[in-house]
Amino acid sequence: MKKKKLFYGKGLPYLKLNDLPGKLIVIEGPDCSGRSTQISMLKDWLETKGHAVLDTGLKRSTLIGNVILEAKKGNTLGKKTLSLLYCTDFADQLENKIIPALSAGFIVLADRYIFTLMARDFVRGASKEWLMELFGFALVPDLVFYLSINPDVLLHRAFSKYGCLDYWESGMDLYLSSDMFESFKKYHTLLKREYEEMVKNFNFIVIDAERDPNEIQKDIRERISVFLDSQAL
């Protein structure tokens, strides 16, 4: 079997990583695309099959989670600072949770990875070269599922879930429109474009996420089964 690339860029030179027996599976997609529902169903299924599973997501790190929350309240951080804070948080998760679990042979289900962070920054005008090199320490996942959904469906889901729209999830900091409703649609159209641009470069498996959750789960399980079988050979 061809040995796959371990990192996207320069990696973590001070870590001597030879072989990580675990598998890294990423679910990407915007807020309200159904990621956490899919992940919890996958965890059930994989554990029943006898795999050890770690589910982890962005913004759960203890390192700088508070700074981000604080800053968002007051809307006081510059774009570069926010990119770097999110990147710190991701690095913390990667080195302190994901890599140890992979070394121990777990299947890691990541609720979002670097792609959401990059898409959000690209929309805000960050340089592609800068961000790609910045995230060069990220492990290349075994599988990346992208839950694709149209902004109008997303809008409906956001209302059903929260009853109202969120300032940041509507991209209000971009001044696309002073009307949050308009801003949400424009922002998610831009985000979707960024995700779509990444599909080819990062081998996303695109999943139509406008369907029933059980149908989506069936698709994802099929892909994971094929992958796990190929690894067992």
Partner: peptide, 27 residues
């Protein structure tokens, strides 16, 4: 806080200082 708990790896150590610098730089 993170330094006290020795939670930092070389990469997170670097990125936290970069965040600090970026904040002062942008503001």
């Amino acid at each position: 806080e993170a330094k006290k708990k020795n939670l930092l790896t070389p990469t997170t150590f670097s990125l936290m200082h970069a965040s600090d610098f970026a904040d002062r730089y942008e503001k």
